[in-house]
Design a protein around this nucleic acid. Structure first.
Lengths: 269, 269
DNA sequence: AAGTGGTCTAGACCACGGG
DNA sequence: CCGTGGTCTAGACCACTTC
């Protein structure tokens, strides 16, 4: 059994939270106060709080204090369009979806560049293509989505140059109709795809740009779409897991029940 | 710009790792040694290493030292069976899949209990059902999968009692044929489903049972399957993100390319 | 027993946020 | 300005691992 002093502090707080002594968003006792209450040094109280922070249960802000974390992830429909018109609620696009969830001030920045493939990209886009003349060139579209001024989600899409070169895909304008539609207008059909979903902790840069403290992982989704055996694009989406969840539906799901799913929260007990 | 001493330590290590000075699994300099090299107190060196640990880049083991983290997540095909026979490589089941990935000593423990629905469970299983006599009862199947002696993944499935009561689903034997097949033999068809995928940090209990240090999030997958509008089961799967990734395929994906996807690693740069 | 990380203290000073 | 967290030190002792 672990009865170190800092564990005592952490357990003390954890129990208080479980009891509901403090509501989400509410401020907790400060380091000094806790140290006195539990008769430990301030450093130890600090270490104890740090544990709760690493668990994602509280958010500590310098000069302000510690606050109960409030995770309300938004659900994104990730199921590819294969199934036809799935749910209008989600199909309408990213921004309306967010607005509906109560967020305002949604903004998007897109940058486009031309680059040679990193090994990681090559591994995903090279299949079924000879490494010909421009076989190493990719069009890179990087989009950052901001909500209420903060970075919300970032997405990078790589297209083989012979598909996207000198097309609307190279314009930094946002693609209102969606990538799939633009590709189709260029004569390519996204017939099928795979998604890989995983999670990891943010790098310092990522933590900084997303405004994340310790205890908040990133959800990472990689998607490659194909026409036949030919890869059309590789998209990597990175989003803080306290604000995002992915929804995959199988079969012909009635919209009403997808809406139910969109209300799910893995942080719920 | 952050130039605090502990940041210097962290950056020093991060650069060394990026340079490839230490390979995955290799031991790093100790706290004392680092402190001396960089002319900081041991406590500061410690804090610096802690940062790298929280990023999931190194694993620190008491009495041993710090080691470069080596994340090699296994890809699990999560796409529901809707599409028919997708890929034999994955369909064969969990254990062979793991064995193929080079792991031995795979074991599974299943416990079955009868319980009343928590609110979370009710929210997911109540739809399309009147809260009748036994409407609150659920059959709970908890499975823990162990690999090389350590907890690998844990899964809890809830069935409405009027579906699973007095059936093979209440036996703690593992269901060789899979839940879907057993349900079918009981006259239920899993016509469609939704999955919600998210990530969060482990609780102390979870960290303990999975053997996780700081810096490793959990991947959480929730799945509810339906026949028509009736929920048949709710499954929650929890797995350490450094060892698991989920694969969702859309369209009729050729097996060869799914195999390519199964080689993807989000930790790659 | 030696080596390495884990915990803890007391005290100092800095940095940020809000009156 | 004050309160709060952020960083850092020096030194002590404990617990676990390995030889």
């Amino acid at each position: 059994m672990n009865t170190s002093r800092k564990t005592v502090v952490a357990d003390h707080l954890r129990e208080a939270l479980a009891r509901g002594d403090y509501k989400p968003g509410e401020r907790l006792p400060g380091e000094e106060e806790l140290a006195e209450q539990l008769d430990v040094s301030r450093a130890t109280a600090r270490l104890g709080m740090r544990i709760l922070q690493d668990e994602g249960r509280i958010a500590i802000r310098a000069g302000r204090g510690a606050f109960v974390a409030d995770h309300r992830p938004i659900v994104h429909l990730a199921t590819p369009v294969t199934g036809g018109g799935d749910s209008e609620r989600f199909q309408a696009g990213y921004q309306p979806h967010l607005r509906e969830a109560g967020y305002d001030q949604v903004r998007q920045e897109t940058k486009v560049s031309l680059d040679t493939m990193r090994p990681k990209v090559a591994k995903r886009l090279r299949h079924g293509v000879e490494g010909g003349a421009q076989g190493d060139l990719v069009v890179v579209r990087s989009s950052s989505r901001f909500v209420e001024g903060g970075l919300w989600q970032s997405q990078v899409t790589y297209f083989p140059y012979d598909i996207a070169g000198n097309t609307p895909l190279m314009s930094p304008e946002s693609l209102e109709e969606g990538v799939t539609a633009v590709l189709r207008s260029l004569g390519y059909r996204e017939e099928w795809n795979w998604d890989i979903v995983g999670a990891r902790m943010p790098s310092p840069d990522e933590a900084e740009s997303f405004g994340l403290g310790p205890g908040i992982p990133l959800l990472v989704q990689e998607r490659v779409t194909y026409e036949g055996e030919r890869p059309l694009r590789f998209t990597e989406t990175v989003m803080p897991a306290n604000r995002h969840q992915l929804l995959y539906s199988g079969g012909e799901a009635p919209e009403e029940l997808l809406v139910l799913a969109s209300d799910v929260n893995i942080f719920e007990r």
